[in-house]
């Protein structure tokens, strides 16, 4: 057995990392196609307020992040419905409020180490409860994503036509925002709140360079994310780097390599 798998914390890290690598790109595909990358960032940053609240109140920070992200998600949807002309502003307003609250609450937490570990993630230090939370939340996110697979596709492709055809667009949007909130909250513990949205976007962008259908885009995105996670964990273990950042940077390097190769091929062809 490889040395890396002899450690209990690395086994947990692989399990949590691969589980998240399956669900994050599923959400990421819709976010990229709807051109809403800001929503991932907004919810991830807002989840920090939940982390700080969790640390202050002595409850699990990941659970705190989930609650606050869900509330932020509902807030975004609420503002969007009330002010449809300013839908983008709802994201910016919610993110600002979340970061402000996180900033204030983090000032009262004892020891900045725990809070900071959520900024860039700390996948190797998750405990059994958090691992169970990651797996359970991921299962829920994956099942709901698969159940709403076709509706999410249609809303991403053409919201007006989807609504006219009878798809319950409001319901689909609300559920999707809640899924995004759940996804970024649990991912903030592993890859970090500051870079979770990169993991939503980079594997999808890589997949879109090769996919020949929407279905392939989803499958390839998951495969890319799993590969980045495994490679990132190996590199971080042997080179003693931060795992979350290494996973994201691995993705960035692969994406740049793909774009350069495809660009060169196009020029030659």
């Amino acid at each position: 057995m490889l040395e890396i798998f002899a450690y209990d914390f690395m086994q947990k890290a692989f399990l949590a990392g691969i589980t998240l690598a399956v669900i994050i790109p599923c959400i990421g595909v819709i976010i990229v196609l709807r051109r809403l990358p800001m929503i991932g960032d907004a919810l991830a940053h807002t989840s920090l307020a939940g982390v700080a609240a969790g640390l202050l109140l002595g409850i699990n920070p990941v659970a705190g992040a989930i609650v606050v992200s869900m509330a932020a998600a509902l807030c975004i949807e609420g503002i969007r419905k009330k002010l449809p002309k300013y839908a983008e502003l709802s994201i910016a307003v919610t993110m600002s409020a979340g970061i402000g609250l996180a900033g204030i609450l983090s000032g009262f937490t004892s020891g900045s180490g725990s809070f900071n570990s959520f900024l860039f993630g700390s996948i190797v230090s998750i405990d059994s409860f958090e691992l169970a939370l990651v797996i359970a939340t991921s299962l829920v996110v994956l099942i709901v994503f698969l159940l709403l697979y076709k509706e999410l596709f249609y809303v991403a492709l053409d919201e007006s036509s989807a609504r006219i055809s009878g798809v319950p667009v409001g319901f689909v949007n609300a559920v999707f925002t809640l899924l995004t909130a759940a996804c970024v909250s649990i991912a903030s513990r592993t890859v970090g709140a500051l870079i979770v949205s990169s993991l939503m976007v980079i594997p999808v962008t890589c997949a879109m360079q090769f996919a020949k259908s929407y279905r392939q885009t989803v499958i390839f995105s998951v495969l890319f994310a799993v590969c980045f996670t495994i490679a990132g964990l190996f590199l971080s273990f042997y080179l003693d780097l931060r795992p979350g950042a290494t996973i994201v940077l691995t993705g960035c390097v692969v994406l740049i390599a793909i774009l350069i190769t495809r660009n060169s091929k196009r020029k030659l062809g």
Partner: peptide, 19 residues
């Protein structure tokens, strides 16, 4: 948008197929 012609046309049957 990464979708095939079939996927795009099929989408308008989704409400009839049901959630």
């Amino acid at each position: 948008f990464p979708a095939t012609v079939e996927e795009v046309v099929l989408s308008n049957l989704y409400s009839r197929i049901g959630l």
